[in-house]
Amino acid sequence: MIAGCIARVLACTLVTSALLACSSNTPAPAQTTGIVPKPSLAKAWQGQLLIGAAVDEKNIKTQGTLIAEQFNSVVAENAMKPMATEPREGEFHFEAADAIVHFAQSHDMAIRGHTLLWHLHTPDWMWQGTNGQPADRNLVLARLKRHIETEVGRYKGQVYVWDVVNEIIDEKQPDCLRDDKWHQVVGPDYVDYAFRYAHAADPAARLFINEYSTEAPAKQRCLIRVVQGLLQRGVPVNGIGHQMHISVFYPTVAAIDETLTAFARLGLENQITELDMSLYRWKDNHLYDTRENLLALQARRYGEIMRMIHNHPDVTAVTWWGVTDAGTWLNQDAPSDHRDQPLLFDAQGQPKGAFWAVFAAARR
């Protein structure tokens, strides 16, 4: 069934019709009994988008009912990253990832794979050669190939899309690639190799570059330049993952719209992969209005973004980076009196105004 759902989403051509009006005062149910509202977001958006959430092995146990009823796609927040799956060379750990895959399959949900290569989650052994010498290019590529073959091969036919590389763009560099160890040891073609290894391991999987701030003009130009080069070399890139860790203050809906259009023109699929909307400005713990007003603004902004997505048949999935406000990564280092509330469900798992705005934006 889920294969059919994915096929419908990937093949979906949105018809033009009047957009359903939505505002921050969209009425919520009169009662708040802890019962998950029906129909769910996944059902409301069925046939248009996959609606996803980042999960871990803990919240699929504590919030499994909520996740299964509201979403039809999941991504492992950390369990599929290299340091989690191969912390020591040749020593693979898939227990947490397997639990998430089993949960998804038991609830007929699609599975995103995140991520095969990320400079912040590359274990140190990748760079260590013999006799205390640094690993050379050939050794690093051989290790990368084995890692990707093992992980992608394990979930072949189960994970429908992989974030092959994550956060590789640096608009300040001449070639637009981050000057990290991957770039320094292997060279810029490490990106080509990562995609080719992933494609060989599962030819049917969709392969993505995942990146943040794709709406920023300089970064967007660099990402387009890198992607065009990959496509010209015949590298199997299928789409762009736009992280979208945004705020109630920025970016504009128009900027997001223009970004999606720019990559759709390249013939690429777009997915929003790590969506949350902070009540704060970046690295600023000051609230610029009352929480009530900011949450109303958040709901309105979520509704505007989701209505805009109706104009983009190239967008096949929207994934929130978390399930409830209680588990958002944005509160990991936040002072106790500056807790953020960026998701659709509050800390108790109750639907917020943002939920109702996203729900109302669906064509049902």
Rank of each mutant, 00 (worst) to 15 (best):
W329S: 06
E149D: 14
M80Q: 09
R364Y: 11
G322D: 12
A21V: 07
A54L: 09
L20G: 08
A360V: 09
E167T: 08
T85G: 11
D337W: 09
G157N: 03
A299F: 02
G64W: 13
T328P: 13
M244E: 03
E167N: 08
G303L: 03
P313I: 06
A53H: 14
I256C: 13
T273P: 04
A110E: 00
H121M: 14
A21M: 01
D180A: 13
Q105N: 12
T85M: 13
D98G: 04
T316Y: 06
L279E: 00
R281A: 03
V358F: 04
E57V: 14
Y197Q: 06
E151K: 13
I256F: 03
A264R: 03
Y250S: 15
N72H: 08
F355T: 01
G132T: 09
I111W: 10
E89N: 13
N293E: 07
R363D: 10
R363Q: 14
L275P: 03
R233L: 01
N72M: 12
I148S: 05
M308R: 05
H121E: 13
E91A: 08
Q350F: 03
A42K: 04
A135C: 13
T13F: 00
N238H: 15
Q271E: 12
N210E: 12
Q332K: 15
P313K: 05
T130P: 00
F103S: 12
T130N: 00
H121S: 13
R154S: 00
I246A: 00
A296G: 11
N210K: 11
A299H: 00
A53D: 11
P188Q: 01
L230Q: 15
W282I: 00
E91M: 07
E69F: 08
Q63D: 14
N331E: 14
R291M: 08
E215W: 02
H121C: 12
V15C: 04
I209P: 05
L275T: 05
D333I: 08
T65W: 09
R281V: 02
E151R: 08
R196S: 09
R307F: 04
W329E: 02
A3S: 14
F71D: 01
T16N: 04
R206N: 11
A3V: 09
L120V: 10
G241W: 02
L19E: 01
A317Q: 12
A361L: 08
H102W: 04
D175F: 03
V161F: 04
C222I: 02
A201V: 10
L117G: 04
R281W: 03
S213L: 14
K38L: 06
C5F: 06
R300A: 15
W162T: 05
I272F: 13
T290W: 07
V75R: 03
D56T: 14
G34K: 04
K172T: 15
R291I: 07
V185D: 06
E77M: 10
H119L: 10
Y250V: 00
T259E: 06
K172Q: 14
V227P: 09
G234T: 06
W329C: 04
